[in-house]
Design a binder for these strands. Structure first.
Length: 265
DNA sequence: GTGGGATGGGCAA
DNA sequence: TGCCCCTCCCACA
């Protein structure tokens, strides 16, 4: 389900529960065949980069998890709950358990493979000190629409469909504008905003991207479900700023949402 | 009950 | 660009 913010939150909570401990690992549905190789080993730490998780069990023994659209974790206190549905992975100690289902990839990476993954990914706004310049350069070189480029994990890592749509609305930039037609100031603004929104999204389980003065009910504390986003999944509804109907269209295989009036081509 | 869509991405072509 | 992976939820019948 998640974008980068949730991945980073998982890394934090899983590290807090299991890092520094010997853990049991198994795969009730058998879809993680290498679970045996990790069972009884000590988890050294959990790393998050973009939408990827790396559970470090030592050199060349990194459990890579990518949740894709479907994947999700559950956790709780022992004893283990009964297995229901397709549980791909369980990790547990005497006190806590963790369960993973769905997901694109659960496999063991060598250090080299993890390294080449990192090389492939663009700067992650949630990694302190990440240098966004290479991402800016890629965007300004290309004719591809900025909306597609923001989804490209080799440009920036961790931004998904919700943040893509909302970052572009907040910057008042149309997703259909070619990357090379965005200014450096605009890109710096998007990066700064991405850092802010995703960090908030690590702490807050809801993806709130609207600000109080733009919301119909204007409450700072309580945000209604239908006022969480400016454009994401709001197609056909009036823009909070100008009242124009929010648009929805396919872009590079994914659905993009935008306000045709507020966001400039 | 059923079908379509969803916060992703790798791959073939 | 389209297909596949293969899970959950919701609108609609």
């Amino acid at each position: 389900m998640p974008e980068g913010n949730e991945i980073h939150r998982f890394a934090q909570t899983h590290a807090a529960l299991f890092a520094g401990r010997k853990v049991h690992v198994d795969s009730p549905n058998g879809r993680f065949a290498d679970a045996n190789a990790l069972d009884g080993k000590k988890l050294l730490g959990v790393d998050a980069v973009g939408k990827h998780l790396g559970y470090n069990f030592g050199r060349d023994l990194i459990m890579h998890v990518h949740l894709g659209i479907y994947g999700d974790f559950r956790q709780g206190k022992m004893p283990l709950p009964e297995v229901t549905g397709a549980v791909r992975l369980r990790m547990y100690t005497r006190t806590d358990w963790l369960e993973l289902r769905g997901g694109t990839d659960t496999s063991i990476f060598s250090g080299a493979k993890w390294g080449s993954l990192l090389k492939r990914l663009g700067p992650d706004p949630l990694r302190p000190g990440a240098d966004p310049a290479p991402g800016f350069e890629k965007i300004q070189k290309r004719n591809t629409q900025i909306g597609a480029l923001l989804m490209d994990q080799s440009v920036f890592a961790g931004i998904g469909n919700i943040y893509r749509a909302e970052l572009l609305f907040r910057a008042r930039i149309s997703p259909w504008r070619p990357g090379k037609e965005t200014s450096l100031a605009e890109l710096k603004g998007i990066w700064k905003d991405a850092k802010k929104l995703l960090s908030e999204g690590v702490k807050n389980t809801r993806y709130v991207t609207t600000i109080p003065k733009d919301r119909p009910h204007r409450s700072a504390r309580l945000v209604l479900e239908e006022e969480l986003h400016y454009v994401y999944r709001r197609h056909g509804k009036p823009c909070f700023i100008c009242g124009t109907k929010i648009g929805r269209k396919e872009m590079a295989g994914r659905t993009v949402y935008w306000c045709p009036k507020c966001q400039k081509d």
